[in-house]
């Protein structure tokens, strides 16, 4: 059977959901990143000087865009899928002939869409503060899309295990935020002492930020092929985990 209609239904329902509440979903990222660009780029940036031979504001633009993509794609799926569970209208999907992979693709598609919309808005804001150039379009778009998909999958798994609204805020606050801020968004790991540089290499977000920065600026602390390989590996593992959890009915069936 052709499941494209079911996929489109979930996907466009998700897009309609976050667009309908755009003051909650799109505007906060625009405000926060404007402040980053203003404070770290315009006010403090000139005192910091150059990073990898580039003005500091240019250096942080790709990381700040990706940071918004990560938090929004994760946040979209975790809140939407958990609400679906909480209000029990997940049952509408479970009783219908919709395979698990279509459910997953629909929700992840919605998360990727929000990540891309917010990433686009942040990019436009960055253009107000500096002259943004993209050196490698394919790498930039590929990493953007893959990172949004990866964090949408992570949000999906978080929502499956969540039993309360507290559970959907713990991971973003205590795991995701530290990893993002320590993932080389605002600095190069070459500035760190050897020990902390090695520790940073264990942070997967470092690879994504550097791959994305390579797409924009043609500079990276990490080999781009390793970065793309790590992102792909994470996506594969999270897809398999999500499908397994849906098959078992964890958190959604009794």
């Amino acid at each position: 059977m052709n499941h494209s209609v079911a996929f489109q239904t979930i996907f466009f329902k998700e897009i309609y959901r976050f667009m309908r509440i755009w003051p909650q979903t799109v505007v906060p990222a625009a405000v926060t990143t404007s402040l980053y660009f203003l404070i770290f780029g315009t006010v403090i940036g000139p005192r910091i000087g150059n990073m990898h031979g580039l003005p500091y504001i240019d250096y942080i633009v790709p990381g700040v865009i990706l940071m918004s993509v990560i938090t929004n794609s994760y946040g979209n799926v975790v809140s939407s899928f958990y609400s679906t569970k909480f209000q029990r209208h997940i049952e509408e999907l479970l009783i219908a002939p919709v395979p698990n992979w279509v459910i997953l693709a629909g929700y992840v598609g919605g998360g990727v869409a929000r990540g891309l919309v917010v990433g686009g808005v942040v990019m436009l804001i960055a253009c107000l503060f500096t002259d943004v150039k993209v050196m490698h379009y394919a790498v930039t778009l590929g990493v953007l899309f893959m990172t949004a998909a990866l964090f949408s999958l992570a949000g999906f798994i978080n929502a499956i295990y969540a039993n309360s609204f507290d559970d959907i805020s713990i991971i973003p606050s205590f795991v995701l935020a530290p990893l993002v801020y320590l993932g080389g968004v605002f600095y190069s790991i070459e500035l760190l002492p050897h020990f902390w540089r090695q520790v940073s290499l264990g942070n997967p977000i470092l690879y994504m930020v550097n791959a994305f920065r390579y797409g924009f600026l043609d500079i990276s602390d990490i080999d781009i092929k390793i970065a793309v390989g790590i992102i792909s590996g994470f996506i594969l593992v999270l897809v398999l985990c999500s499908l397994y959890l849906l098959h078992r009915g964890t958190g959604i069936k009794t």
């Binding site: 052709n2 079911a6 489109q8 979930i10 329902k13 999907l93 219908a96 002939p97 919709v98």
Partner: peptide, 10 residues
């Protein structure tokens, strides 16, 4: 409409 969509109805 969403419920119909889950059943493949355009």
């Amino acid at each position: 409409i969403n419920q119909a969509g889950y059943y493949g109805i355009r």
